[in-house]
Amino acid sequence: MSNSILVFVEQREGTILPASLQLFTLAQQLATEQGGQVCALVVGARIGELASDCAALGPKRLLVADAPPFRYYSPRAYTQAICDAAATVGAQTVLLATTALGRDVGPRVAAKLGGALATDCTSVSSHNGSLRIQRPSYCGKCIAELELPADGLRVLSVRPNTFAAPEPDAAPAAEVEPLAVDIDAIGSRATTLEVVKSDSMHKDVSEVDIIVSGGRSVGSEEDFSILYDLAEVLDGAVGASRAAVDAGQQPRDRQIGLTGKVVSPRLYIACGIDGAIQHLAGMRGSRVIVAINTKADAPIFSAATYGCVVDLFELVPLLAAECKRLLAADS
């Protein structure tokens, strides 16, 4: 009977993403509730060493598609690999992390295999063999609940940090099974030529998920460096209020607000910004807003999700260090 649970393990430059490790907790839970064995698939080029990391998380079968064309993500090749793996292990459920890759490949896999799909789940539970999932929708203003049927293939991508990663098991159960994927048969005409890394110095505020933004009270262009450090750790970009831009502390293209750029990132950290109406209008749509300001009555706090009444120069470096520590622990 094909009721396996296939975990797609995403790696980046030879490191498994924490979000992928967390999927094993869910996989184990589903195996307990609905039966079936937990299997894993790693795709990449020259990723031999990763297999043991993966094996320690307890999959019964561990497939590795290790070939040069997998060096960069390619929707069709990766889709093919996942579909082949699903067929190999007899998967009924495919789990992915909601990353750029997970969002991109999940729908193709589900479409190709005629399965059901749920993207960016924040809660998954069994329900007489079917799956009840919850996922945020309408820009986080509502939560939708869906049911994926007990029969047929189900593809789920799970929001990172929804589950904690399981403790690695010292005695791995699975042998590595190489998975041969017939990539030539796909005849994909899309090839990734290169990946250009971007750092917080060069990221555009309108294109990132996390923004660290500073007001005029940051003081000077040099003082903004602590904001850049935090943005770098969080893989975000730095924004600025109009007053800071007017004072020449930041270039005009970083200005956020009614008269600058209107942004709606996942996380907006406002450092030393009081929150004039022009500014609020430009960032109100952010999902989570953190306000760091010494003035407890600053209007920004009325828009914020979390607030810290403190000097930004004290908190921001600590925040960067804490995030760094945590993210390092993840990987």
Binding site: C142, I143, A144, E145, E147, A291, A303, T305, Y306
Partner: peptide, 18 residues
């Protein structure tokens, strides 16, 4: 393939947590 069960409001976004 998926069945819609329902929609619920997110946990109330209360005033700023200090």
């Amino acid at each position: 393939r998926a069945t819609f069960i329902g929609l619920s409001p997110p946990p109330a976004r209360e005033a700023c947590t200090i």
